[in-house]
């Protein structure tokens, strides 16, 4: 088999995951895209290990390590997402703007849905929606 086939497939999967990580709004969908990127790396590792016929099998051992680290990452990531959802009532990463730069004085202020969630009227309304739901 040509090495170009798995290499090109890995590149295309990585680009798909890159698009998903940049374009998705839900934090769990971003985690799915990260999984796609990790799998592309795994495919590359396996293909190069089989091509080089490595006696230490470094590629396959590293693939197993990557799978284990990805499992740990998805566990911690989902715990963090659930904690954020519990505290803020949303897992929408566009709304988590506590670390963003405040809009400058001359600029038109952001609309209400993009504003950082504070204890203002909108947040009270969102919390009331959660209680009724």
């Amino acid at each position: 088999m040509h090495l170009a086939y798995p290499a090109v497939l890995a590149v295309l999967l990585f680009s798909t995951g890159l698009y998903g990580a940049l374009a998705r709004r839900n934090a769990i969908l971003v985690l799915m895209s990260v999984e796609l990127m990790l799998n592309a790396v795994n495919l590359n590792l396996v293909a190069f290990d089989v091509w080089l016929r490595d006696t230490l099998h470094a590629g396959q051992a590293l693939t197993l390590f990557t799978i284990a680290i990805a499992a740990a990452e998805i566990g911690i990531g989902l715990a963090i997402v659930l904690l954020v959802y519990r505290n803020r009532g949303t897992s929408d990463i566009d709304r988590l703007r506590d670390l963003a730069d405040p809009p400058s004085a001359g600029q038109h202020p952001m609309d209400d849905s993009m504003a950082p969630p504070t204890d203002n009227a909108a947040d009270q309304a969102r919390r009331a929606r959660r209680q009724t739901a």
Partner: peptide
Amino acid sequence: LLLFGLMLT
């Protein structure tokens, strides 16, 4: 796990 996360959020 991802489906669990989608359900819980």
